[in-house]
Amino acid sequence: MGDFSFFLEVVVGGLLSGVMYTLVALGFVLIFKASGVFNFAQGAMVLFAALTFVGFLEFGLPMWAAFLLALAAMLALAVAIERTVLRPLVGQDHMILFMATIGLSIFLEGFAQLIWGTKVRGLDLGISDEPIEIGGILISQFDLSAALMAAVLVAVLSAFFSYTKVGRALRAVADDTQAAQVAGVPLGFIWAVVWGAAGFIALVAGLVWGARLGVQFALTLVALKALPVMILGGFNSIAGAIVAGLVIGVSEKLAEIYLGPFVGGGIENWFPYALAIAVLLIRPAGLFGAARIARV
């Protein structure tokens, strides 16, 4: 195999794993964009969604039914969060909302395991992990399917935001919350929709990552992988999350292969964070993030 096709293989592999990071980051970005809240509980939502899905599978339901039921559970969860956590805290400082999501995260982790148990479960989505050869490059079928799922998800979400009445209202809330309320947009409903969409993303991320790592507590840590993606892409940019996820995926793989041998390997795990710190120094708002311009 030529050096170049090996390089391409690393790049494609990186792109595909980057999609997996994007999936998790999207959930954060959505909520941050709409409400300025960093949702610490996104990782717990991924675990909750995956456990719920696997739980329904274990009842013997077919996969599509388990998916729909798990989606319904995530939407119900979103409504419950809006009623019990967000609504009473309207107008509070963002730091207080952030701390509330930490509490929510701890609750969700406990609640999910209370219902579904703590044992590690395998999740087989019926997609083989055999590599296939495309144009002389070996590509993981599973990664490719995950990337396709993510692409469909992003397309559905962006069509929703661009062309529907609720999507337009959601962009209005993200732009200027008070003005949107005055224009007749009910904030509670919009927040429930946003958290519902984040729950939907968490479910897809939970399936993909759960099939990779097994459905277990460690899924909540997947959220940590999203942090450098968001720092690189900007906390409030969906396009940023997509591009940054891909950049992180490719760069960590390239760093591992080409820089790793000089420092004894193991770069992959910390390289994204180093990259994120470098970005923070040079461009704190991220590649696509809007720098906050405040009138003094």
Binding site: K165, R168, A169, R171, A172, A174, D175, D176, Q178, A179, A180, A183, G184, V185
Partner: peptide, 19 residues
């Protein structure tokens, strides 16, 4: 003023009809 600065003028107006 508080126009939705990232939305188009027409989208601004349409949000006004949300209710």
């Amino acid at each position: 003023r508080h126009a939705f600065s990232t939305l188009s003028v027409e989208d601004n107006l349409k949000v006004g009809a949300y209710s």
